[in-house]
Design a protein around this nucleic acid. Structure first.
Lengths: 247, 247
DNA sequence: GAGCGTCGATAACCTGCGTTATGAATCTCT
DNA sequence: AGAGATTCATAACGCAGGTTATCGACGCTC
């Protein structure tokens, strides 16, 4: 899973917007792969912002540790995602990032990012669009935290993962690998681990979600989508036409 | 309140990063002021993304109307803020925007934005930083929705407004004008209007917040900040050093 | 394969917040 | 200035979800 395979860049590629030079620049972000272990912290909250990363393998999450002892997971990152763009424009990290399972990441610097911005308007637009898209996912989570009940939050969370994993070819027979513990799911959804367990049981009893250890299957994804009224424009939609004249 | 007075741009100006041409470009975003009335919807969810806006006067909010009949307010915009950047990179609006009270807005187009990106790296960085900053505010709200109780959410919300208003000179004697109804505050914080009322009473009884109709006073802002462990780096922090060599 | 730590299921209990309702105060329109 | 519409405060009641606790099932390591 390289950045070139990622969704936004594929979109740009389809429109013929990417030159060979663009592709070279993009691959330049992935020259320094590093193997990381499960649970490894890539950076802490408030650390200096020096690097960004492409995830090649494994899952990660960004998080905030709170004064009251709890943790809020902000976002789960999958292979092909860029980590750290949230902090672009800040001197210090607004959130920590840790690996969920083991994987491979490719760090790159501010300088590389600036170089891309300077050399390739098409890539600049692509990177910005990618960042905005990640924010859209965050916004969707905010809506769910604010206004939906536990079973809707969990259903939405699983369905979102399902869609994102499907795009990168990580779904088989409506099932996928899901390395998060229920405690971590709770930290992402603003629920206690106990209630996540209860809610999983509920969804199982309704035939919407089957879970076996770290493997989740959605027997009827469409039924789940209906339950959460999933709005998938923010995940799948192409760049608007106006960008094509620009790039 | 013009964009030039806004915080990020002031930051850039202080570093001497803005040329006269930059300033002209920036003022070009504010050539078409339009008076808007209280409650006026600037655009609906799913509408085509054609315009962005600078708010010159008045408050606005972005929101999502949900299937279950409730509404989630995503963000409150104050004078000097840019509205709509959230949708940059999408063909359709991810959220509606409406005015809270009457005011003046200055719409501008994609084309103007592209022109700025093309002509002035300094402004491009400033705009991106501004967008990222708005997203940081959203993230902070997400954390509070997920992991804090009603009184903490409200205290945080008020203190954030206090800081943002102070920066634009709209705070006097620790008090400020706050045109949101309790129902709207509830929609922002994921609470019912009734509970917002209860919580206001609670904060009043503790001497932390005085409210008289649309006027809010924080007798002891520092005490409030301590209550919410307010992390203000995301509001006030300057651009990191690496940007200064770039711009 | 014994021992230990993590993870998840389920139960019992409690509370913060939603819901509904009522009345008072304030705003708006004519 | 009167009528209707908003907005807000407060109370009564119920429930979703937090908390604590217990137990079984899997993973580790030696």
């Amino acid at each position: 899973m390289t950045l070139l395979d990622s969704v936004v860049m594929q979109g740009l590629g389809r429109h013929g917007a990417l030159t060979e030079e663009d592709k070279t620049l993009l691959l330049g972000l992935e020259l320094n792969p590093r193997r990381v272990s499960a649970g490894e912290v890539l950076w802490q909250e408030s650390a200096d912002v020096d690097l960004f990363c492409v995830i090649k393998e494994g899952w990660a999450y960004s998080y905030r540790n709170l004064g009251n002892g709890s943790m809020q997971i902000l976002k789960v990152y999958l292979p092909g995602d860029i980590i750290g763009m949230r902090d672009f424009g800040f001197a210090r990290r607004l959130a920590g990032v840790a690996m969920i399972n083991e994987g491979v990441i490719c760090p790159f610097t501010h300088q590389q990012l600036f170089e891309i911005f300077g050399c390739s308007p098409a890539l600049a637009v692509g990177l910005i669009a990618m960042t905005v898209r990640q924010q859209a996912i965050l916004t969707e989570r905010l809506v769910y935290l604010g206004r939906y009940a536990a079973h809707e939050r969990l259903a939405h969370f699983l369905y979102e993962l399902y869609l994102r994993l499907k795009r990168i070819g990580a779904v088989e027979d409506n099932g996928f690998f899901m390395p998060l513990s229920q405690e971590q799911v709770g930290d992402a959804l603003g629920l206690s681990a106990v209630h996540v367990s209860r809610t999983f049981s509920m969804l199982r009893d309704e035939g919407l979600v089957v879970r076996d250890r770290q493997h989740v299957t959605l027997p009827d994804p469409e039924a789940l989508a209906r339950l959460v009224e999933f709005n998938d424009t923010y995940i799948d939609e192409a760049l608007p036409a106006v960008f094509q004249s620009f790039t």
